[in-house]
Design a protein around this nucleic acid. Sequence first.
DNA 1: ACCTGAACACCGTTCAAGT
DNA 2: ACCTGAACACCGTTCAAGT
Lengths: 220, 220
Amino acid sequence: MGCMARPVRRSGTRQPSKRYHHGDLPRALLHEAVHTIQRDGVEALTLRGVGDRLGVSRTALYRHFTSKQALLASVASEGFRMLRQELDEAWTAAGRGAAGFEAMGRAYVRFAVRHSSHYRVMFGGHLDPSQRQAIADDQRANSRDESDAFGMLVQAIVEQQQQGIVRPDDPQTLALYIWSVVHGVAMLAIDRLLESPREIEELIGFALERMRTGIALPKS
Amino acid sequence: MGCMARPVRRSGTRQPSKRYHHGDLPRALLHEAVHTIQRDGVEALTLRGVGDRLGVSRTALYRHFTSKQALLASVASEGFRMLRQELDEAWTAAGRGAAGFEAMGRAYVRFAVRHSSHYRVMFGGHLDPSQRQAIADDQRANSRDESDAFGMLVQAIVEQQQQGIVRPDDPQTLALYIWSVVHGVAMLAIDRLLESPREIEELIGFALERMRTGIALPKS
DNA sequence: ACCTGAACACCGTTCAAGT
DNA sequence: ACCTGAACACCGTTCAAGT
């Protein structure tokens, strides 16, 4: 363990350190938790385990998280933030509209598959209602236009209604329906009911096509 | 504890007893497990707890189930059996066809809401793959036409394709899509993201309508 | 055949104590 | 300010022993 030159810190710019032992333990704990869940499942996550693997006492975690639940809530919160960002990027990169909407759908399922540990914690019912509410509030407060991932979906629908390519039903209800479809596909995918990536891509493609037909403005 | 007249048992007709202590402990354990999950969630299920509540030692369970996992697998298995039966009844009672299909969709979500503890165990990722496979095999073996709930759905689709009211896509893929929709709605409903029963009924109604439009045979 | 009680190796969490 | 070690009240599971 040689001693390394430490970068000067200006007040308030607290940059992340790569070393956890004396560095950014909260971030390291979060990363290790995600890694463990990804490898062995949520049930296998153990505070003693993450402590050991980080070379730290099994109670060190309590300096940064109030409980195991709080650690899981942080995983979920990080997941929602990443999901929103990836949906946003997909929507914008595809030039919004119908193409952007399809890109969002694909991005959603891809996120669930690639970050299945985050996704499981986000929607697996491991969080109690109060924590879930806290995360949702936090999410809206920290996004520039005060909307979370679901809010983004609603906005995308409204925009397409104005373009005359989506039927003029209640946007909230439409959003719930669409979320049901992609969430269902995502669950099928990450539960390994679907084997290959190709199989998943095929189903999401099919689902988005049928979904689009179902919500399209009927030709007058 | 007075002594009660016990009904005579003919061989092979082993009828369920209301008393667990000397009666049908496996069934009592299963019932108590479901009840506990329904009230406090899967994480709160504890072998010691069910033992206590049944007035039985905490290791008595091991005479009838190999492990806690096996107990959960039994809950799931019972759930799949009930689901298949309720879908079957809905489909038949509504006279099959398009009406029967809609009835199946509603029955599916209603099952998830009413038996949310079963549903959570069935699809919450609490079972490991080997047990899940065993349940699926058992399910097909014990149904008269060798099809589980998913198989029923496929059959219903094929029948509607023959009637010319559903587009001639691959029935398996169509079934996966439809399952995604109802599963997504069910998850939204039981996670209390939807408050009132009316709200749930409205969403499932809307979802089935949009889904039907999406999979209908296009007018030539 | 069915159930018990003690024992074992694990948990999350608290708290006084160390630096 | 941050971390540790012992302690506490819980787990699932095993196994010899009871009836």
